[in-house]
């Protein structure tokens, strides 16, 4: 008799537990307000990344096309996987002294892991994180970028 009672109580317990699950999915089915989807390409205008978002590394240039990079190579040294290559030149400055300036600050976006060591260790705060995340391309070589803009110069700090 006991086993028969168990048989039927099993059935009812089972059905009630199934109903509990169906209530949850049913509840969401009838409450479309719970939809949390952000419709990406449609919301492009309003989509704003957090200010600390690490999308890519950029070298901020001011209005006079000046940047702060001295070409010291600390970012290159600190980068764990060689995403940064710096090509420097030596040019004579106004006083006739030879001075190191960057020729190309090459940044391999294809390799970058956004660990932030370059931005953190840069002694002259020449690097920053950009907010752009739409980087997908058809050609791998497009992911190698030169961060300093053509014709840009180093910003001389007023001493």
């Amino acid at each position: 008799m006991n086993s028969i009672a168990k048989y039927f109580s099993d059935i009812f317990k089972g059905i009630s537990s199934l109903w509990a699950g169906m209530r949850i999915t049913g509840k969401y089915f009838f409450s479309p307000g719970a939809i949390v989807t952000q419709q990406y390409p449609e919301n492009r205008a309003t989509l704003k990344m957090e200010e600390r978002f690490k999308g890519e590394i950029v070298m901020p240039h001011d209005a006079n096309n000046l940047h702060a990079c001295t070409g010291c190579g600390i970012c290159e040294m600190n980068c764990p996987n060689g995403s940064i290559e710096i090509l420097t030149d030596r040019v004579a400055n106004a006083e006739g002294k030879m001075e190191r300036v960057i020729d190309k600050h090459i940044y391999h976006l294809s390799m970058c892991t956004f660990c932030g060591l370059c931005v953190k260790t840069c002694p002259s705060d020449a690097l920053a994180f950009g907010q752009e995340f739409e980087h997908a391309v058809f050609d791998r070589s497009k992911l190698t970028k030169v961060l300093n803009q053509p014709g840009s110069k180093i910003r001389k700090e007023a001493k």
């Binding site: 957090e50 978002f53 892991t113 956004f114 660990c115 932030g116 953190k120």
Partner: peptide, 21 residues
Amino acid sequence: FEESFGSRLLHSFNTPGGLMH
């Protein structure tokens, strides 16, 4: 996570001695 560290999954937020920022 994203608000504080700028990335969603892998943040590399700790450094020896403390935090990145």
